[in-house]
Nucleic acid binder design. Structure first.
Length: 429
RNA sequence: GUGAUUGUAGCUCAGUUGGUUAGAGCGCCAGGUUGUGGCCCUGGAGGUCGGGGGUUCGAGUCCCCUCAUUCACCCCA
């Protein structure tokens, strides 16, 4: 065992995998710009109160999963961000961007931190991409957010995803429903588990998505939130669904879908992947008109957004073989040294090739020619350029096509000419 | 935080009822080919058997503790 290991729940991404990340990030940037969303980058830490106010102190995230610390003895507590939305909203309010333009469409890719036990598809440091649409939360706006998310998934080639959607109504709807739930659950109180009892106190809606079979049995007979929605709330929800239908986005209405963050209202949604284990949520989001007020804004900022787990997206793509076409870019030319003493000349040649825009590799470890050639082969180099004493004195180099094994003797200028003739020097494999 | 699981070479894993200097395949390095790869052959480097304690004449194998891993619960992306 090495003396040092990565911190529990944190992992390294080596080149083979980072190529996959770059690819996925590229798709996100492209699709986001299609929808007119611009990238925002906010700090990885914020004052702890931001999350307590924004996410809600009854949530598990705030209650037990935050990495918080005091920067100095008299300082204010700081927390590594466990989610993005609160920070984005804080940034928008701080700069007062909505007074300059009433609607802002922002997206992000960033690292988050949550102190949970790691398991499949869950790390303590993980990444999400997502979008926040600030200033309007009409059905068209909410549908826009969902559509953007689904189009990113589609552009990545993801299959077998399930989109579930629900309406949480406005605060009046939820107040009436909450009372109804309390009276429904009262006679069952003795049969509830501890966490359900606590939820009933603090946030009764969360009982609905309990995984405990005994609780679910009781939940089955509970009143439906849908039946407590006002006419306006129902119309709003139906309109969102209308847009989704128009765009051929298939969804399932799930009356039990609640979501764990306090700031959601009206439309809430979640996408799951059948390729993942227990942690199968790949993305989710909803409308959160109340968040800005919660953060001290003098006026309401209607808003909606989604967040998707990068690791879970990557995991699903891997399982579905979507990275097969991603081949690493090898060198075009491998400069092979006959003897280590010729390294100075070889370095000079390699440098000139690179200055001319040719991806060039050269052994820096003074290994044997056999090892250099094996290396060139493994890296799928197109050409080998040999440096021996003859080459150094004549300035003419043995230049070998590694696919056909044909070899000629050329000056460096002629080599460059040959490489520029074939498309950037790369040979068909 | 709870439960279970696994920890032997860089990687994947063998290791028989506890019994001498702990093995294989792949990978790595070198040689076979004194200036040329992909195949093949030969050799080499690399291990405090996660760590600590205990039982025993003797522990990679048994017991205890500890650390780490993985999966699941809780919850979430």
């Amino acid at each position: 065992m090495p003396q040092y290991q990565a911190v529990k729940g944190a992992r390294d991404i080596f080149p083979e995998e980072s190529a996959q990340w770059k690819y996925v990030e590229g798709v996100i940037h492209t699709v986001a710009s299609l929808y007119g969303f611009s990238e925002i980058r906010t700090p990885v830490f914020e004052y702890t109160e931001l999350f307590q106010r924004g996410i809600g102190s009854t949530t598990d995230i705030v209650g037990k999963e935050m990495f918080s610390f005091l920067p100095d003895p008299n300082g204010r507590s700081i927390t590594l961000r466990p989610e993005m939305t609160a920070g984005v909203m804080r940034a928008a309010l701080q700069k007062n961007i909505l007074s300059a333009a009433p609607v802002h469409k922002l997206y992000y890719i960033g690292e988050l931190f949550r102190k949970e036990r790691p398991q499949a598809g869950r790390q303590r440091q993980f990444s999400q991409f997502g979008a926040e649409l600030l200033g309007v939360s009409t059905p068209a706006a909410v549908a826009e957010v969902i559509t953007l998310m689904m189009q990113v998934f589609e552009s990545l080639g993801l299959r077998n995803l399930r989109l579930r959607i629900n309406s949480l109504g406005d605060s009046d709807d939820r107040f009436r429903y909450r009372e109804a739930l309390k009276t429904y659950f009262a006679p069952f109180h003795d049969r509830l588990d501890d966490s359900s009892k606590e939820r009933l106190e603090k946030n009764p809606l969360r009982i609905l998505d309990s995984k405990n079979p005994a609780i679910q049995e009781i939940v089955a007979g509970a009143p439906r939130l849908y039946d407590y929605l006002s006419v306006a709330s129902v119309e709003d929800f139906e309109k969102v669904l209308y847009y989704l239908q128009e765009r051929g986005i298939t969804y399932e209405i799930d009356h039990r879908l609640v979501r764990g963050l306090d700031y959601y209202c009206h439309t809430a949604f979640e996408v799951t992947s059948s390729e993942l284990g227990a942690q199968d949520a790949i993305g989710g989001g909803g409308r959160y008109d109340g968040l800005a007020r919660e953060l001290g804004s003098s006026s309401e900022v209607p808003a909606s957004g989604f967040a998707a787990g990068m690791e879970r997206v990557l995991l699903t793509m891997e399982k579905q073989g979507l990275f097969a076409a991603l081949t690493p870019q090898g060198p075009v030319v491998y400069v092979v040294l006959q003897q280590a003493e010729l390294a100075d000349h070889g370095m000079q040649v390699a440098w000139r090739l690179r200055k001319a825009g040719i991806r060039t590799e050269i052994d820096l470890a003074a290994r044997s020619m056999k090892a250099q050639m094996r290396d060139a082969n493994r890296m799928r180099a197109s050409w080998a350029l040999f440096i021996g004493s003859a080459e150094v004195t004549t300035g003419l180099y043995a230049f070998k096509n590694l696919v056909t094994s044909e070899q000629t003797t050329l000056s460096l200028e002629a080599v460059l000419e040959t490489l520029h003739e074939t498309a950037s020097g790369e040979l068909q494999k």
